[in-house]
Amino acid sequence: MSASHPDYRLSQLDQLEAESIHVFREVAAEFEKPVLMFSGGKDSIVMLRLAEKAFFPAKIPFPVLQVDTGYDFPEVLECRDEWVARLGLRLVVASVEEAIASGVVVDDGRTTRNRMQIGTLLHAIEEEGFTAAFGGGRRDEEKARAKERVYSHRDEFGQWDPKNQRPELWSLYNGRIHSGEHMRIFPLSNWTELDIWHYIDREQIFIPSIYFSHQRRVFERDGMLLTESEHNPLRAGETAEERTVRFRTVGDLTLTGCVESTASTTTEIIDEIAVARLTERGATRGDDRFSEAAMEDRKKEGYF
């Protein structure tokens, strides 16, 4: 036994990293046309970092796909562009507004942009002929996700069948699909929110500034703090005021709430999360609040 690793133990972050890198390489080797779904949020940035490591010194051998709701935070789009430029990647943007304009999805005035992403995404996957799409979903986020496989099969309608999933044993992933089907791949399945932050901290990973404490004009709706914006007009009785906040997740800005926080470094965020008493989705995501099975239903339809 060598002196440097007297007991050959890996830290939990090193082990998670090694397992995720294994998944990236497996997919690149077995799928004809993979794509990485990149929102510009922290989880998809960690995915990109792991992909960078998996193929280094070669470039990441697949493009990235972003679903642009038209309601994205500008800081997130800036961060996205910087990552894409640094790694020299091809960026495919699937725009919800274009999808509405061309009739791919219908804006009936009641459906949220978040929900309209599903049709937009499936259309882009079909148009480009992607056979595998990496997503940043984690099993600790929500209990329907707790049962999802790392390789999650989608039929030709892009649907997930939770009752009929393929068994997934050891690290032997089964990537067989038929023409027209695709696989969603979740390399971060076993990471928790804290693992993500510890990794961002350790690797000094560049993420959008809105994850850190800043001043912002916000208003309260349904117990959430939402950002003041032209896309999100104030309703009767609502007033906006400036507060010191940060975001725990980033999505459609009309639905993504922030939390009051003075945490301005990754270390301070880790301390804050360690004592947090609400899940990141429960605290800040209007889209998960509608019912007990909100996530399961959206996932079946083809959500990330």
Partner: peptide
Amino acid sequence: LLTDGLRSEREQGITIDVAYRYFA
């Protein structure tokens, strides 16, 4: 109810699938 994540499991009151849980 914390661990039975799928609607059909909650309806039947049984665990059908493998669920992964995390704690530290």
